[in-house]
């Protein structure tokens, strides 16, 4: 591929590069190791035990993504036409992709739509929050019990980088799959599933069921949170020169999309396993 630049573009690009290098050299000794890495801001509310603490950043970002997705949905419904516009075609592509996935995997027809609702919502929410985790913006850190605002040295804090979100969703998927199973098979048949080969396998089955949400949630959390910390450390080591852009792109967009897909795919798979007779 051959790229042609006009004269003005060449001047702009070379000027940009010179300024970039000058700022990088000027910053060389000023960049410190980011404070409060691996720590999150928490707020106490008058509620018993672990319910009493909240992560305000996660809540704020969840609200932001909530509003974004809701706005997108309302916009979709308002401009709904039979011959789709470009935006509508994009949303339809994503949704029909998820729907076909669900239709292929779920064996019972009456559970296709609820599973589609759950998995598509999971996919959209996680995709949006992961993509937000690939865009540099305002991030919050805590040091010495003071809140500090970091501008553009890290990406927006994504809700999936908080274990609460992932564990909640994974456990929810587990519960939903078992509720669907009870609805489909009846309580007795469902209970028989736990002692299926023989009663000795009961603890193994229960552990297997409990291990599902753990791996399900920690996969996403490890990718987003671990990737975020790794990017922060590598950015510090390279003094925020060129490398963080590539890493933000990789961890935010590529890994984010793949992990959102994996999470919703596994949710569908867990539900379909419970629905098999």
């Amino acid at each position: 591929m051959k790229v042609k630049f006009s004269k003005g573009e060449k001047i702009f690009l070379s000027g940009f590069l010179v300024v970039y290098v000058i700022i990088a050299i000027w910053n060389l000794n000023k960049i410190e190791f980011p404070k409060g890495i691996g720590e999150v801001w928490q707020v106490k509310v008058p509620l018993p035990s672990i319910l009493g603490t909240l992560n305000p950043i996660t809540i704020i970002m969840t609200a932001v993504i909530f509003l974004l997705i809701t706005y997108m949905a309302i916009d979709f419904k308002r401009h709904l036409t039979k011959i789709p516009s470009r935006k509508q075609a994009g949303i339809e592509t994503v949704l029909s992709f998820v729907y076909e996935l669900v239709e292929d995997v779920i064996p019972v027809k009456e559970f296709v739509r609820p599973t589609f609702y759950i998995s598509a919502t999971l996919f959209l929410f996680i995709l949006f929050s992961n993509l937000l985790g690939g865009i540099p913006g305002i991030s919050f850190g805590v040091s010495n019990h003071h809140l500090i605002l970091n501008l553009f040295n890290d990406t927006w804090p994504s809700p999936t980088g908080d274990l609460n979100t992932n564990v909640t969703y994974a456990v929810m998927v587990l519960f939903i799959s078992h509720i669907f199973a009870i609805k489909l098979k009846g309580f007795k048949t469902w209970m028989k599933g736990f002692v299926s080969p023989n009663p000795i396998m009961l603890p193994m089955n229960i552990i297997g069921e409990l291990a599902k949400p753990v791996s399900h949630s920690l996969r996403l959390f490890g990718n987003i949170a671990g990737g975020g910390i790794m990017v922060l450390m590598l950015s510090y080591l390279t003094k925020y020169t060129i490398v963080p852009v590539v890493l933000w792109g990789f961890f935010g967009f590529f890994v984010g999309t793949v992990q959102a897909f994996v999470f919703s795919m596994l949710a569908i798979a867990y539900i379909s396993v419970q629905l098999e007779q």
Binding site: N223, G226, Q259, V262
Partner: peptide, 25 residues
């Protein structure tokens, strides 16, 4: 392939998390 690699990669990410937790706290 990308999907299954993302699933297979998760154990490595657990160890990354554990390493961070050992390092930072």
């Amino acid at each position: 392939m990308l999907l299954s690699q993302a699933v297979a990669e998760s154990t490595g990410l657990y160890s990354l998390l554990i390493a961070f937790m050992i390092l930072l706290f």
